[in-house]
Structures are given as C-alpha cells and as structure tokens.
Amino acid sequence: MDGLLLLEQTFNGLQFGVMLFLMAAGLTLVFGIMDMVNLAHGSLYMVGAYIATTFTQWTGSFVLGILLAVPATALVGIAVEVVVLRTLYDRDHLDQVLATFGLILFFNELVRTVWGPAALFSDIPAFLQGQVEIIPGVPYPAYRLAIIGVGLAVALALYLIVSRTRMGMLIRAGASNREMAGALGVNIKLLFTLVFGLGAAFAGLAGMMTGPITTVEPGMGDPILILAFVVIIIGGIGSVRGAFVAAILVGLVDTIGRAFLPQFFRLFVADSTADAVGPAVASMLIYILMAAVLFFRPQGLFPARTG
C-alpha cells in the first residue's frame, strides 16, 4: 500500500511541477534575456484564469475557452510590456520591483472591479471528470492527468522552439549575451515583446488549468509567484531546461514533504509535536532546497548566462 501511495504522491508532485514550469518558463526567459525582474507575472496567471473562465461561460466549451484565452492573455502581456515594462529595462532592479509590484496591486484591483470580489465558479469539463486507474487500485483524477499531459507537451514544444527555430536561436543568444546579440543586428526590442507575450501566454495557461481545481479570485497569482522565483533560482536564471528540471524537483519535494514528513517525525517525537513540526518543516523544505543549491551552485543547476 505504501508503494502505491508513494506512486500517487509522485503523480501529485509531477502535476504540481509541470504547473510550476509553465509559470517559471516565462519568468526565466524575461529575467534571463531582458534582465528584468517582473513581479507581475503572477497577475498574468490570474488574468489568464479570469479570461478563460469568462470565455468558457460564453462559449459553453472549456477547450474553446482556453484556446481563446491563451492568445488574449498573450495580448495582455504584450500590452503590459509595451506600455510599462519597456521604459524599465535600463533602470535598476529596485525600480523594476517597485513598478511591477504596483502592477500586482493594479491587476488585483482591476479584476475586483470587473468581476467583483467573490470567487468565480470554474469547473472541470464533463469529459475530464471522474478518475482513471493509473494502475489497478490507484484511482487518479482524469483532469490532473490532463494537466500533466498538457504541461509536458508545452515543455516539449518550448524545447523545440528554443533549440530548433530561428526565434529560439535569438532567445538563446539574447540570454547568453544581450549586448552582443544586439550588436549583431538582432531586433532586441521586438524579441523582448514577443518573449514577454510568450511568457504571459504560459503563465495564463497555468492559471486557466488551475482554475477548475482551485479558486479563481483576486490575488490568486501572488502565492505561486514566490514558488516560480524559487524554481528559476534553482534552475539557473534564463535556462528553460533548468526551469523544467527545477520545477519538477520543487513539485516533488514539496508534495512528498507534505505527505510524509509528519509521519516521519512521528517515528521520533510525540504525535502532538510531530503535528506541529511536520507541516512547519514541510513548508520550509523547498526553501531549504534553494539554499542548498545556492550554496553549492550559486549560478543554479543549469546556468544560461555566459557573459
């Protein structure tokens, strides 16, 4: 039974991991290529979830809702880049943090004004309801399996874009040395805008797929933003491969820790102490992981920057 439970928890960790990857992919590209700290990335996650929920209600189809909402979120991202962020690239990180923190407040207030303060209803589409037995005796929600599938597909697509296409080549060139890429005639400005739109679309997609299992409410993107930063620091800033490995790692460590640490502590201390210490340590686990990575490999697991 314990083996089966471990397998189920591994799936949970994987699902959380691919979700984090979708968030972190955009963040790491923006941070790596543009050297821009964008705290408002979580807001795009929230905006994506709201737009998808609205489109789903209008069209009556979850898939259609997402297909419409992904480009819409990308457009929101591009608008934010053109209007606000473009003026911030030459400023230092503190200015960027202040301005994008302002964007968080702006977007939280905006969705509250447009959609109201109450949480929206967002449900799993009928064809993904129910459970699938991943192996006999272990039923697993079909929707979560679908998230894992979509997440892995997006990761593969992003890998192909970055490693096989001309735009990907420019992205890699930009991440490794921005000035040199610009000096060689690459239209860095346009590249920045496109990359930001791409990142926004991924963050939005993460929000859209999480909506039906959590709460679509103002500020829903703020907690996950911190985790996305942890992921890109562990993975190495600017590296998509690093973001993928780190996201899965963080997803697994967090889930396995939450599931098994309290029981683990019960082996050594009284139950009431384990109940208090277990969850506390479990919620610290990924930060301990980050500290360890920073200690042994300050550049992260897969550093992208060369100069």
Binding site: L5, Q9, N12, I213, T214, M220, P223, R258, A259
Partner: peptide, 21 residues
C-alpha cells in the same frame, strides 16, 4: 488521522491521497 495544512493552501492533492490511503 489528524493533519494540519498550510494556511491559504491552494492544492490539497497530497493530503487527499494520504487521506484516501
């Protein structure tokens, strides 16, 4: 079983698997 979760937690997948077990 008695489980304390993180305040403001969004995803309970790990807790639900443990609960079922």
């Amino acid at each position: 079983g008695q489980v304390f979760t993180k305040l403001g937690q969004q995803d309970y997948s790990a807790e639900l698997s443990t609960l079922r077990a």
